[in-house]
Design a protein around this nucleic acid. Structure first.
Lengths: 343, 343
DNA sequence: CTGAAAGCGCTTACAG
DNA sequence: CTGAAAGCGCTTACAG
């Protein structure tokens, strides 16, 4: 069995509406877009014709003639995980509120610095939002050259390029989290599990970690730092190898909640009791973090808000209004039980 | 009046490329789109011009002239949760593989049956993917009338409309899950927590539940059925009230994992030990389900695959090829520990 | 307040 | 294999 599309008669165009209402297409355009002055009764005549013919302006023609697309392009390396959903929600909502639609393209990771024309750009959007590593420096340079509205999310622009970006207070958040571990729980041997190589979030979280240790006169043991890749399995493997090597630790700070999950798994399958035998903390506060056992102490990243803010900045740029070169959204330490607190 | 003043910041158009390569725009179009025959050396001349001028065809003009948009519209009621990410991943990937871009619009829930022109439709896409309740019957009827390619996800079309849809084997999955509860664990008093009112997934899951009870000669107790709304908090409240009322139960089947979470919370804060004192099972197998305590026994819904399949069906429709009126993707019971098994 | 007309930047018969 | 030309369906000065 199969269904097939049946073609019916042509859709109504602006000419049809104009004819039906006895006006010119210019007038129809004016009432549709609420631009320019039109007499009240003309307006209602046109509106009636629109309803009767079920007229909907065709985007392509509108964009061509108007030199705008009313759409925002979002580039991400991968549409995955708990991190993505809230960000998308923020972006989508803000775009809608301002009359823009959202075009999403995921570069599928690894697009890193291979310069290849993206399917989203000047040719089909009014502006681009780029999350982390989804766009090459060459492409970014091109966009900056032609002055195309662009905002970076959780990533700073290549040096020399004047592209606004919005991200979160990674360092501050990490600093406070580690301070808690040291000051409240008296841990001194705190391991750090980095995120992805070259990822700025990870970099600044590590800086916060180092700063906290330094501030408390704790000598950093480089053996307590390893790469977790923001990945459950990689994190789990690292912790298992630490355990096998008999590394002495009080606590493990995973660069994100996703990898904290792997840490928890490794510890539990080694028969350790998290929070008593070993503290674990993460970063992001993804939706499942409060349901873990024990509930995860972490730093809340205002991801949805990052999406909203970045989109607003982009829309400002598109409208030719001022926009902040850098916006750092505040993070907040969320104390639960995996750090050793009672909850 | 001299044409020497070629504006430096204007983007290259097809005319510029044609002039640069010494050919007509028709020829440029042919090499760009790989349509029609072009001599080998002409091709390379044009390609060189394209590179030199950094030419990128403008989508709006292309769409207008070509009467196609090369984009797929996705309508969802809300971009939230663990359910959405995998579905989006499947849709996005399949769209990309076939040269389509994705336009996403979330109706923000409650769009139910208020007929209001959607920002996604015939005017800016080649086809529409609609997830559950994101589009009104009136709108759907309109789309069917004009034969516009449309595919429904996790939702059947209104009666009389010939619109293909893809969903999962809800009833079968629920049936097997409840069979397990009865046959392996000997539970007889199994409660069911419905999902959202009028939601087809919920309806069929309930049918599977009822069918299993009937097959095992267990009389259905209507007091053991309540509305959980696919919602953590609502589910939690219901279970708390059941507990307060002293309802006798062996097990609770939550219509999705999200609400199973609420069940777990309610049970645990009442001091009950899930899996020993009371079994809990869910549906979907969202990413966090295996990390819950105890790990959740559930039914795996192939959500990403649903996204892929629906998109492929839509693309078939767009291309005028055959498409299945209904595709039911298989589900699978995932036994973990919350049902009382050892794990 | 309204309309005639010139595009916007492409694609695609049609003719050669 | 290639080009001239007629649109695609809108918007927007410009003129009245």
């Amino acid at each position: 069995m199969s269904t097939e599309t049946k073609t019916k008669n042509r859709r109504a165009s602006i000419d049809d509406v104009a004819k039906h209402a006895g006006v010119s297409t210019a007038t129809v355009s004016r009432v549709v877009n609420q631009t320019g002055p039109v007499a009240a009764d003309t307006i209602s005549r046109v509106q009636q014709a629109i309803v009767e013919l079920n007229y909907r302006p065709q985007a392509a023609a509108r964009n061509l003639a108007g030199r705008r697309t009313h759409t925002i392009g979002l580039l991400v390396s991968s549409i995955a995980g708990d991190f993505f959903a809230p960000m998308l929600r923020g972006i989508e909502a803000t775009a809608q509120e301002n009359g823009f639609t959202l075009l999403v393209y995921s570069t599928g990771g690894g697009a890193g610095n291979i310069s290849q024309p993206l399917p989203l750009g000047e040719q089909n959007t009014d502006g681009i939002l780029s999350f982390v590593d989804s766009i090459s420096d060459a492409e970014l340079t091109h966009l900056a050259d032609i002055g195309f509205p662009t905002v970076l999310i959780h990533q700073s622009p290549p040096t020399g390029l004047n592209i606004p970006f919005v991200t979160i207070e990674n360092k501050q958040g990490a600093r406070k989290l580690v301070d808690h571990l040291i000051e409240v729980h008296n841990y001194r041997r705190i391991a750090f599990l980095r995120g992805e190589e070259g990822h700025e979030d990870s970099y600044w979280r590590e800086m916060g970690y180092r700063e906290s240790l330094r501030a408390h006169d704790i000598l950093l043991d480089e053996n307590l730092i390893a790469a977790g890749g923001f990945d459950r399995n990689q994190a789990r493997n690292v912790v298992e190898s630490w355990l096998n090597a008999g590394i002495d630790m009080d606590a493990i700070f995973a660069a994100d909640d996703e990898s904290a999950l792997g840490v928890l798994t490794a510890l539990q399958s080694a028969g350790l009791c998290v929070s008593q035998d070993m503290a674990v903390v993460g970063f992001d506060d993804i939706s499942m973090s409060c349901y873990l056992t024990p509930p995860l102490t972490t730093v809340r990243a205002p991801i949805e808000d990052v999406g909203r803010t970045a989109t607003q900045q982009l829309i400002n740029l598109i409208r030719g209004e001022a926009s902040e070169p850098l916006l750092l959204l505040p993070t907040e330490v969320i104390i639960r039980q995996s750090c050793g607190c009672d909850g």
